Amino acid sequence: MREIVLDTETTGFNPETGDRIVEIGAVELYNYMPTGETYHQYINPRRAMPQGAFEVHGLGDEFLADKPIFADIGQSFLDFIGDAKLVIHNASFDMKFLNAELEWVRLPLIPFDRAIDTLAIAKQRFPGSPASLDALCRRFGIDNASRTLHGALLDSEILAEVYLELIGGRQPDFGLSSGGRREQTAVDVKQDWRPKPRTAPLPPRLTAEEEAAHGELVNELGDGALWRR
């Protein structure tokens, strides 16, 4: 089962008053596990950014001036998400902006029933408790120290970890309570999917002293030692 964990950054709170998306970040999950495939795009909103609100994000007018407009990236975004379910924290906000942008450039809208709202899941599981992304990271012991500066891709990566905890950890079908389980839905299942090889080998964990000691042991075993073959 393929799902896309998604986040956006916007110029404000309402597309109907001219606010626009300035960043989209998304992470692909397959059977609840990250595949390593991501989508990340900065977008020129063609309007002045609110003073002071985005300088800390690095998303000022000068930075966004040479970025593509949504019309230039809308189709590639739709191609990436395909028909997968979209995992979003406070889904109504992001879906409102995404569909406004898609409608303005006459691209297909995304049905709201494709959204899985982690905010709603958190409120149902932990009624009366804080349900922000930061609060959920604290609850589940997820390291979000790098979230000092918000960013759509970073928030998507963190939300993917939160989502897996909300549905019962990395093996959701073994959850003992109904709140920790969720029904599978048939969406763009890739039967031939396989984990991708690492882009770089893991660094060795042996110390120089351990490696030297091992070499001495092999020498003592003689030329017939297994490690010499």
Results as ranks from 00 to 15, higher is better:
Asp223Lys: 05
Asn99Val: 01
Ala91Gly: 11
Glu157Gly: 00
Leu202Ala: 14
Ile69Val: 14
Ala135His: 09
Leu59His: 09
Gly58Ser: 03
Ile73Gln: 05
Gln51Ala: 04
Asp61Tyr: 13
Ile142Ser: 11
Asp61Lys: 00
Gly128Phe: 02
Asn44Val: 03
Leu221Ala: 06
Pro130Val: 03
Arg125His: 06
Arg229Ala: 03
Ala91Ser: 12
Ser92Arg: 11
Pro108Arg: 02
Val87Gln: 13
Ala135Glu: 01
Gly18Gln: 04
Gly175Ala: 08
Gly222Pro: 05
Val187Ser: 15
Ser129Phe: 08
Glu62Leu: 00
Val105Pro: 04
Gln171Met: 12
Ile4Asp: 07
Ser129Val: 15
Ala71Glu: 05
Ala225Met: 03
Gly151His: 03
Val187Gln: 15
Ile24Asn: 09
Leu109His: 05
Leu154Thr: 13
Met33Ala: 13
Asp19Gly: 14
Thr38Cys: 14
Ala120Asp: 06
Gly52Asp: 08
Ile158Trp: 14
Arg228Tyr: 00
Asn219Trp: 05
Arg181Ser: 15
Glu9Gly: 15
Glu37Trp: 02
Arg170Pro: 10
Asp94Cys: 10
Arg147Lys: 14
Arg46Gly: 11
Met1Glu: 13
His214Val: 00
Pro127Arg: 02
Asp117His: 00
Lys96Asp: 00
Ala71Thr: 07
Arg2Glu: 13
Ala26Gly: 13
Glu211Ser: 00
Thr148Ile: 12
Thr35Glu: 09
Asp223Val: 00
Asp223Pro: 13
Gln75Trp: 03
Gly151Lys: 00
Gly168Lys: 00
Asp7Phe: 08
Gly169His: 10
Gly60Arg: 00
Glu9Cys: 13
His214Phe: 07
Pro50Val: 00
Pro15Glu: 05
Thr207Lys: 02
Arg170His: 13
Leu226Ile: 09
Gly215His: 03
Phe97Trp: 01
Asp113His: 08
Lys67Ile: 03
Glu165His: 00
Arg20Pro: 12
Pro130Thr: 10
His89Phe: 09
Glu37Cys: 12
Val27Gln: 15
Gly74Lys: 03
Glu55Pro: 15
Arg2Asp: 15
Ile158Arg: 12
Phe174Gly: 14
Phe13Ile: 07
Leu6Thr: 08
Pro68Thr: 07
Val105Thr: 04
Asp83Met: 06
Asp7Ser: 12
Glu183Gly: 14
Ile142Lys: 15
Gly82Gln: 03
Ile167Asp: 13
Thr8Lys: 02
Gly224Ser: 01
Lys96Thr: 14
Ile24Ala: 09
Asn14Gly: 08
Lys123Met: 09
Glu101Asn: 02
Ala152Tyr: 10
Gln191Asp: 09
Ala26Asp: 01
Leu98Pro: 10
Leu226Met: 04
Val22Phe: 03
Thr148Arg: 10
Ala120Trp: 04
Val162Gly: 04
Tyr42Thr: 12
Glu101Arg: 07
Gly175Cys: 06
Ala200Thr: 11
Glu161Arg: 10
Ala208Phe: 11
Lys85Trp: 07
Gly25Met: 02
Leu206Lys: 11
Ala115Phe: 05
Ile81Lys: 04
Ala65Cys: 06
